[in-house]
Computed example of a mutant assay.
Amino acid sequence: MTRDTNSTPKTAVLYRMVMEEHVCPYGLKSKDLLEREGYAIDDRPLKTREETEVFMEEYGVETTPQTFIDDERIGGYDALREFFGQDVKDDDETTYQPVIAIFAVAFLMALGLSWAFYGSILTLRAFEWFIAISMCFLAVQKLQDVETFSTMFLNYDLLARKWVRYGYVYPFGEALAGILMVAGALVWISAPVAFFIGTVGAVSVFKAVYIDKREIKCACVGGGSNVPLGFVSLTENLMMIFMGIWMPARAMGLF
């Protein structure tokens, strides 16, 4: 529900939980949003569980906060966002935001390291750091909940389907390879690990997406992600393949 707020009085009534042991975060967000939209707020805190239950029973609602404008109940925080014409994401909506955040921060960190060590952001080492740091960040996402990651991973990874424990090993291998590549150390360990898991991953993703035409979620940023399997995961694996070849070749002086 949306409305032209310029045609309505700038007043709102807000019921929200404000207790000693709990202050509702969505109530604070609703209050902040109303203030930013120029509304004067009649703030009516619900200070006890009993008071909250009486309010919810009276208005036939199951949650707080609840906002009223012109004696009309708008609803909770998401409903208020919709009222003001803002996007509200569905829990199952696909998004690339986690990946964009990871790659953007990794890129900026790589430039920062290059500037600190070499006095310039345009260095070959910055490119290597970018990929290595990205690998570390992606591994951290998986390591937050290895069990959930491994379950999602089984949807498409060919090796994990043959050897289930590989889904538990993968994030540790990616983290190990990324850390060693950031340090530029033990290339004889990091390169084979990155090349192996990258190759298996690339083949698995290519088969699932481009041959089998399956539409499933990617486990690349952890088991709870809504990132679709495809270009992002394939890019992650191709980066590891590249580093698995590039790092030993550079160590041998071929580049």
Results as ranks from 00 to 15, higher is better:
1 M>D: 13
4 D>Q: 12
4 D>N: 15
5 T>N: 13
7 S>P: 03
10 K>F: 03
12 A>F: 08
26 Y>R: 05
30 S>H: 01
32 D>Q: 13
36 R>K: 15
37 E>N: 11
50 E>V: 09
52 T>Q: 08
53 E>L: 14
54 V>S: 08
56 M>Q: 15
61 V>H: 03
63 T>Q: 08
65 P>C: 01
66 Q>L: 07
74 I>T: 06
75 G>L: 09
76 G>C: 09
78 D>H: 11
89 K>T: 14
89 K>P: 06
91 D>W: 11
93 E>V: 10
95 T>Y: 08
97 Q>S: 14
98 P>I: 03
105 V>W: 05
125 R>Q: 13
126 A>C: 13
128 E>S: 13
131 I>N: 04
134 S>I: 09
136 C>H: 02
139 A>I: 07
143 L>S: 01
146 V>P: 00
150 S>T: 08
150 S>R: 06
158 L>V: 14
161 R>H: 05
161 R>A: 08
161 R>Y: 02
170 Y>L: 12
177 A>V: 10
180 L>G: 02
181 M>P: 05
184 G>F: 02
192 P>Y: 12
202 A>F: 15
215 E>R: 10
215 E>C: 02
216 I>K: 06
220 C>F: 07
221 V>W: 04
221 V>E: 01
222 G>Q: 04
223 G>S: 11
227 V>H: 04
228 P>A: 10
237 N>T: 10
238 L>I: 14
242 F>N: 02
246 W>F: 13
246 W>G: 00
